[in-house]
């Protein structure tokens, strides 16, 4: 299997952190073939941060549509056999891609995920938090064919839960998705970020993912626990 991979980074108002995210890609022991940053209608200097990396980074701008739409926009442009995704405020550890490519080769899985460690502050001098399962954009590497089979990542109202819905749809389709015990990335804690803390409006996104699962179950026949 070719180890050629493309990295897709959806970014919204991420000028403060995108540079660290991109550097963590460039520092991989197995380098990427391409890096695509989707600027999701940012109002800050996100695009300028991406273009400062020169030809190593392809910048695509879109009107603000949500992280799932931005991720899908990027994944649709991937020409390599493998695609990996990264949130613009997180960073990869240097061995992340080497390990996940090897896992994809060894297991024939459609996608692999790894653990993430929470951190605060600068990625270069982080204050570390707990390790948690990384069923997340930042910790995922997949075969491009999986995205083609499952289709776009849909943003529910609240703009949370889009990965819950997409991963679940992939699992229900019969895709093999494995989660590795190794810590492969650092996940940034920022108060007020899209994914931080309880927020009744944002948390509605998970309810839409749950509702979609219920409706699929009614038509598909998998049972309650």
């Amino acid at each position: 299997m070719s180890a050629a991979y493309t990295v897709v980074i959806p970014a919204f108002d991420a000028a403060d952190t995108l540079g660290e995210a991109i550097r963590s890609v460039l520092e991989q022991t197995v380098p990427p073939d391409a890096i695509i940053v989707i600027d999701d209608g940012s109002g800050d200097g996100t695009g300028a941060v991406a273009t400062a990396f020169g030809p190593a980074v392809t910048l695509v701008r879109q009107d603000n549509a949500g992280p799932g739409a931005a991720m899908s926009n990027g994944l649709a442009r991937v020409a390599t056999p493998l695609a990996a995704t990264l949130d613009a405020d997180d960073v990869w550890l240097p061995q992340k891609m080497a390990r996940q490519i090897r896992l994809l080769e060894d297991t024939a899985a459609d996608a692999v995920f790894g653990q993430v460690r929470l951190f605060a502050g600068d990625a270069a001098d982080p204050r570390h938090g707990r390790v948690m399962p990384g069923w997340l954009r930042t910790a995922m590497t997949m075969r491009r064919t999986l995205f083609q089979a499952i289709g776009p990542v849909e943003d529910p109202p609240g703009r949370r839960g889009e990965m819950v819905d997409w991963i679940k749809r992939a699992q229900e389709s019969g895709a093999t998705m494995i989660h590795d015990d190794e810590v492969v990335a650092l996940r940034r804690i920022r108060a007020g970020s899209l994914s931080s803390g309880r927020d009744p409006e944002r948390d509605k996104g998970y309810l839409y993912a749950a509702r979609a699962a219920i409706l699929r179950r009614r038509t598909g026949g998998t049972g309650a626990s």
Binding site: L118, M132, P133, G134, W135, L136, R160, G161, M163, V164, I167, K168, R187, I189, S193, S195, S196, G197, R198, D203, Y206, A209
Partner: peptide, 9 residues
């Protein structure tokens, strides 16, 4: 999947 997704307070 849901437990992994949000960062908790």
């Amino acid at each position: 999947l849901i437990l992994a997704d949000p960062i908790h307070d």
